[in-house]
Amino acid sequence: MPQMSPMWWDIMYINFIIIFLLTNMINYWMKNKISKKYNKIKNKNMTWLW
């Protein structure tokens, strides 16, 4: 019969997975938002008329 871990270990593990996934999602979202903003600024700066 396999041993079972205490319930708080399971809760800690699930919390860690949720926090890890949320952190990665936020990081991905922020990088996309910053890159889109940078692309807009870059495109505006490249349309100079001399």
Results as ranks from 00 to 15, higher is better:
11 I>Q: 09
28 Y>R: 07
50 W>K: 06
15 N>H: 06
18 I>F: 10
28 Y>T: 06
2 P>Y: 01
22 L>G: 14
12 M>Q: 13
19 I>H: 08
6 P>C: 04
28 Y>H: 09
16 F>E: 04
19 I>T: 14
14 I>W: 12
10 D>G: 15
23 T>S: 15
44 K>L: 04
7 M>R: 13
32 N>M: 14
38 Y>A: 11
5 S>Y: 12
46 M>F: 05
23 T>P: 00
16 F>D: 03
49 L>T: 07
36 K>S: 05
45 N>Q: 11
19 I>Q: 07
27 N>I: 06
41 I>A: 09
28 Y>D: 06
8 W>M: 12
44 K>P: 00
47 T>H: 05
20 F>V: 11
27 N>A: 15
14 I>Y: 11
24 N>L: 15
45 N>Y: 09
43 N>A: 06
38 Y>T: 05
34 I>H: 10
36 K>P: 00
25 M>I: 12
34 I>P: 00
40 K>F: 08
20 F>R: 10
37 K>S: 11
9 W>C: 07
47 T>N: 07
49 L>V: 02
21 L>D: 01
23 T>E: 02
5 S>T: 12
45 N>H: 07
15 N>Q: 11
27 N>L: 15
25 M>H: 08
12 M>V: 09
32 N>E: 05
4 M>P: 01
17 I>C: 13
35 S>A: 10
9 W>V: 09
14 I>R: 14
10 D>K: 15
6 P>E: 04
35 S>C: 01
33 K>N: 09
22 L>D: 06
15 N>Y: 09
20 F>T: 12
18 I>W: 03
35 S>R: 11
25 M>V: 08
50 W>D: 07
6 P>W: 06
31 K>S: 12
25 M>R: 05
47 T>R: 12
48 W>L: 07
11 I>Y: 04
18 I>P: 00
3 Q>I: 01
32 N>K: 14
39 N>V: 00
18 I>Y: 03
33 K>R: 15
2 P>M: 02
16 F>K: 12
5 S>D: 13
9 W>F: 15
20 F>A: 15
32 N>A: 09
14 I>K: 14
46 M>S: 14
4 M>G: 07
8 W>L: 10
18 I>H: 03
17 I>L: 13
26 I>M: 08
43 N>K: 09
28 Y>V: 02
14 I>T: 13
24 N>A: 14
11 I>F: 06
35 S>F: 03
37 K>T: 04
46 M>P: 00
44 K>H: 05
31 K>T: 01
6 P>H: 06
4 M>L: 13
36 K>R: 13
24 N>E: 08
1 M>R: 01
39 N>L: 04
2 P>R: 02
30 M>C: 04
43 N>P: 00
25 M>T: 07
32 N>I: 05
37 K>H: 07
27 N>H: 09
11 I>W: 11
38 Y>R: 10
38 Y>L: 08
18 I>S: 07
23 T>D: 03
30 M>P: 00
7 M>Y: 09
30 M>S: 09
